[in-house]
Design a protein around this nucleic acid. Structure first.
Lengths: 157, 157
DNA sequence: TTCAAGTGTAACTAAAGTAGTTTCATTTAA
DNA sequence: TTAAATGAAACTACTTTAGTTACACTTGAA
């Protein structure tokens, strides 16, 4: 898998932190839930922490929690915090292009593609972490769910 | 460069075809303009041809041209023709997830990320190839341009 | 009818990004 | 003092894009 799952994993992790509420959620908890490696999770959490979305406590009993309620976190906040590069790139067509058209294509394409990405970002701004959690909860209820105690159990193995 | 320049190169190529009008533009012409390899261009044109945006003529004097005027080609048409996979992927969290929440996160995330991509696509739908060409032309004029004869010269080296 | 100019395609290499893993220093609560 | 955490570095593996070479096939024109 070399696909871009970073954003999805980050949302998943943030969702778990929201569930955890006042409790510290460990990278191990998250990793087990996403079926990945704790280090991968910590790398993501480190970025989210640097951007002020998450606070981390070191040492025994440590872990991560949100810095603000999930209603105040838009998915665009998470996306931007990851600092992903542009989705589309324009091969730098030199300013020294021998064709007058060629010299102007690059900047125009850059502007156009940036505009497209803003369309994506605008959509992400309309969705909060709380919305995502709500969708998950409703989906659970529709299926008739069972156990799982949100931040309580924290089944240590 | 392992970045995603495919879309930008495709737009650039289509733009050249629009300029070429009735003339056949060769993959070599395009490759020289984008500073890449003719094979790379042909691979892109092949996809665009399969999706009906471009028609290609084999043999001497051959090359590519658009199947319809650039006013009728939205950037979303080009993007979709390239058949890129989803921008974001969700690591498949098994349906057998031991946590009831976990079983429902995957589908919800998929839906959310799909919605974000649709925001991007919606933006691309509002821009035609002709718009892009117009922007380039206007930018040229603003800078006080010089020569270049659109489909005429075809400087053979 | 031959040849040069094209495309189509396969095969290979190179470079970059993501994911995964191990390891170790450091912090902290009990 | 010890166990439970994070932080970070180092390394491997895999995937995707880009670039290149090579060659079969098509076509127009001398």
């Amino acid at each position: 898998m070399a696909a871009n799952t970073r954003f999805a994993v980050a949302i998943h992790a943030m969702g778990m932190l929201a569930f955890g509420d006042e409790l510290n959620v460990t990278s191990d908890d998250i990793a087990r839930s996403v079926r990945t490696n704790p280090v991968v999770v910590r790398r993501l959490l480190a970025q989210l922490t640097r951007q002020g979305l998450v606070m981390v406590k070191l040492g025994a009993g440590g872990g991560a929690r949100l810095t603000r309620p999930p209603e105040q976190i838009a998915l665009s906040d998470i996306y931007l915090a990851l600092g992903e590069g542009p989705i589309f790139q324009v091969p730098l067509l030199d300013e020294t292009h021998d064709c007058a058209v060629g010299r102007n294509v690059g900047p125009v394409l850059n502007a156009v593609l940036l505009r497209a990405e803003k369309g994506l970002l605008a959509e992400l701004q309309t969705i909060t972490l709380a919305d995502v959690i709500g969708k998950v909860m409703r989906r659970m209820k529709r299926q008739g769910c069972a156990r799982h105690v949100p931040g309580a159990g924290k089944a240590r193995k």
